[in-house]
């Protein structure tokens, strides 16, 4: 799905988190929102997911105005930085949650839910952990469960907030590869937020460098590296 961000701004009280930004993310892209903390990247992601409402501007999904769609109607697979797993539910119930939450008419039968959850557990290569609770998982496993839970609702896009932030370096490398594979298999337009330029450059097709609520530069990783547009970008990617 093509995502178009049209003159979006966001103020919290009197402080501007986003000065009007415009950005197009082509269908099937794997895009990184890259910037230091306070650059507005998470705010932008939350506006895409319907968790915040922009102060002005529009969001278009495949050319259709989606600004007024509620978070439930957007069907965006959202992975939170803390993963936000339901700790009183098993891994199986976590992944099945979105399917069970549907209104009765569109809710799949139990057998179908079991089939889909099993398939997703296979996809994240953790077929044996359905009966465990989140507290019994490692950080990397939790991240993959959060991803599977987001995929279970058959989302129109995948939004990830610092998906590798809380993990150690080795696991991070492994999971990057995992995300790339899942993206390539599903073909979902994917946007992730990161402050780690190496991660953005290595994983994304499209990198959006942000600072202080503005977009500094948009481009392929190689282009950004070769031709940084501003001093900020040059300095930020050289770290």
């Amino acid at each position: 799905m093509h995502i178009q961000i049209d003159e979006i701004s966001k103020e919290f009280g009197s402080t501007a988190a986003l000065t009007p930004v415009t950005l197009g993310i082509p269908s099937g892209a794997l895009a990184a929102l890259l910037g230091p903390s306070g650059s507005g990247k998470t705010t932008l992601l939350r506006i895409l997911g319907g968790l915040e409402f922009p102060s002005s501007g529009r969001v278009l999904f495949d050319g259709q105005d989606a600004t007024g769609l509620s978070v439930q109607e957007r069907r965006a697979g959202f992975v939170f930085q803390s993963y936000a797993l339901f700790r009183h539910m098993t891994v199986f119930e976590n992944i099945a949650y979105g399917l069970r939450a549907r209104p009765r008419v569109s809710r799949p039968a139990d057998a179908e839910i079991t089939r889909r959850v099993t398939k997703l557990l296979d996809l994240i290569q953790l077929p044996q952990i359905g009966t465990r609770y989140p507290s019994q998982l490692s950080g990397g496993q939790r991240q993959r469960v959060a991803l599977a839970r987001a995929l279970a609702i058959e989302p129109r896009m995948l939004l990830l907030d610092e998906p590798f932030g809380a993990l150690d370096a080795r696991v991070r490398k492994e999971l990057r590869q995992g995300l790339r594979e899942i993206h390539d298999n599903t073909g979902l337009t994917t946007v992730f937020v990161t402050h780690d330029q190496e991660e953005a450059m290595e994983l994304a097709d499209l990198v959006v460098v942000m600072s202080m609520g503005r977009i500094e530069q948009v481009g392929r990783p190689a282009d950004i590296r070769a031709r940084p547009k501003t001093d900020f970008v040059r300095e930020f990617i050289s770290v």
Binding site: G50, L51, F53, G68, S70, V71, Q72
Partner: peptide
């Protein structure tokens, strides 16, 4: 239209 929408928006929490 913008204004009306914003009034209709409610944080999911």
């Amino acid at each position: 239209v913008d204004l009306q929408r914003r009034r209709a928006f409610r944080a999911p929490t």
